[in-house]
Design a binder for these strands. Structure first.
Length: 486
RNA sequence: GUCCCCAUCGACUAGUGGUUAGGUCAUCACUCUUUCAAGGUGAUAGCGGGGGUUCGAGUCCCCCUGGGGACACCA
């Protein structure tokens, strides 16, 4: 099957997680059929489009490994791939439509339009354009022009009949034309609107499948009308179910975590994010959760297994999945990923090899506890600094209890004599101590843990102690004791 | 308000007329254990409601309800 698909974001903000899912499904389909995945920037919103957003889209996609076969920075036989560089093309088609009289100039100003719209909304009647400029006489047009009014071009929607299409995800869908209203195809600035530019470009770029978010479903009949009057061959449509926040509403800024940059900063792995997103709206017959590689995802992907119902984004599940991906990393890989976080919080420079080796040992102890990379600093700070932060709850609950200080003091004495200071020997000493004092394991271990790490939860204590070394362990126990005496 | 779409555990989903309704996350036990995590074992939990069709309905049809989306010179 010949497949040419595109991801066509508008650069009006950073790359959104819903956009990523759309890009991913397009990309998966292209790769599955060995087709082309095209990136097209739809920057026709003159007010809100920014260079910065464009940059963040590129950056986000690259980070995720969603590469494009044609598009900005790469080129291709159907460029340019940025709509503002294609204005002459749209104008040409707009003129063609004007000559055919299927579009007409509308002289209503934006202010008038919004006013009418708001009034309609308030009166609970459908707010569409009322068609008042659709049959202006030449003299009326001239009059408006003499008043200095600018015009837009509106498409004349037939008011009878229905427009239907078959959507790969939705099945047969139909809209009554009477519910559509005449829509703008060319703004007064001669810049096309989404519905128009999108259709022209998809046709010219020979797109075979239009895969996009469900919010575009109701735009589809308008575009189909355009395809028909332009005489363009229609692509296949596939409208993806939306991604919702936990409150059931469309995922938006208000839900916080929505830009790819945020996920990157939090330390989610791109592979895990992609894996999770793939499962939002798509699944295999056996409900497979983890894909071993992108290749596996590509191989198994199919549009007809995309579901129709909207999916709620579940951060907990993403975190579980990310933890799973982190556990599969080698220590060297994890080290490279985590070092920026440690540097940023001034815990480690990571330049010399002794420091690096130490950090790797620390990381290997923490690997299975991480759900995302950014957690590394809060989990490991005590390894890298002598300025141990004591969790006040831990101190109250564990250190400030009856005979704990005496216990620590006495254990500290025992540790002094432990030689060599390695895991088996330290462990043996601790066990002996526990037996001598007739204690339970945790009666000793928890106080020691809090004393030397400041935390209630850490990796195995013997590993931690040995990695820190005898000197630091003894010093920290002493420090803790001093703190308790105060 | 009008149009359109959607409906299986709390969440993501499998299921295409006959299943003890399966899996994963989360939750809760138990287990391992020096804590947390990971691992192992198990549990709780679901077909929104009402009518049909059928020998038989989560699966097909209709209605209701609920949720969502669209209705811009934004995409």
């Amino acid at each position: 099957m010949n497949v040419r698909v595109r991801f066509a974001p508008s650069p009006t903000g950073s790359l959104h997680i819903g956009g990523v899912r759309t890009a991913l499904f397009n990309w998966l389909l292209a790769k599955h059929y060995n087709g082309e995945f095209i990136l097209r920037i739809e920057d026709t919103d003159e007010l809100r489009s920014t260079e910065e957003s464009t940059g963040s889209i590129f950056e986000g996609l690259k980070w995720l490994g969603i590469d494009w076969d044609e598009g900005p920075g790469i080129g291709g036989g159907f460029g340019p791939y940025t709509q503002m560089e294609r204005l002459h093309i749209y104008r040409e088609y707009a003129e063609k439509l004007l000559r055919k009289k299927v579009v007409y100039p509308c002289y209503c100003t934006e202010e008038e339009l919004t006013e009418r719209r708001e009034k309609a909304l308030k009166e609970r009647i459908p707010p569409g354009y009322d068609g008042r400029c659709s049959h202006l006489s030449e003299s009326e047009k001239r009059k408006f022009e003499n008043e200095g009014r600018k015009s837009v071009l509106r498409f004349r929607v037939p008011q009878d009949g229905v427009t239907r299409f078959s959507d790969i995800v939705r099945g047969d869908v139909e809209f009554k034309n009477s519910s559509l209203h005449d829509f703008v195809i060319l703004k007064s600035s001669y810049v096309p609107t989404f519905n128009f530019a999108n259709v022209i470009d998809d046709h010219l770029m020979e797109i075979t499948h239009v895969i996009r978010g469900d919010e575009h479903l109701s735009n589809t009949p308008r575009q189909i009308l355009l395809y028909q009057t332009l005489g363009f061959e229609m692509p296949e449509f596939a409208h993806l179910p939306m991604i919702l926040g936990s409150d059931g509403a469309k995922l938006s800024k208000r839900h916080g975590a929505i830009s790819v940059q945020w996920f990157k900063k939090e330390g989610f792995l791109p592979g895990a994010l992609l894996n999770y997103l793939a499962l939002l709206g798509w699944g295999t017959t056996d409900s497979q959760q983890i894909f071993n590689s992108k290749e596996e995802m590509i191989e198994k992907f199919s549009l007809d297994r995309v579901g129709k119902n909207p999916a709620v984004f579940d951060m907990k599940k993403l975190e579980w999945m990310d933890g799973y991906y982190i556990r599969k990393l080698s220590i060297d890989e994890l080290f490279e990923l985590v070092i920026p976080y440690l540097r940023e919080s001034n815990l480690i420079e990571g330049r010399n090899s002794r420091e690096r080796e130490f950090a790797k040992k620390v990381i290997s102890l923490e690997q299975e506890r991480l759900k995302k990379l950014s957690e590394i600093t809060e989990f490991t700070d005590f390894f890298f600094t002598e300025d141990v932060k004591y969790d006040s709850k831990a101190v109250d609950e564990i250190l400030r209890k009856g005979s704990v200080p005496e216990l620590l003091e006495s254990f500290s004495g025992k540790l002094t004599k432990v030689e060599p200071f390695d895991i088996p020997t330290v462990e043996k000493a601790a066990k002996e101590f526990i037996n001598e004092k007739n204690l339970k394991g945790k009666d000793l271990m928890q106080p020691v843990r809090v004393a030397i790490t400041g935390k209630k939860a850490t990796p195995g204590l013997f590993e931690v102690m040995v990695l820190l070394g005898k000197e630091k362990v003894l010093r920290r126990i002493n420090k803790a004791l001093e703190m308790l005496r105060r």
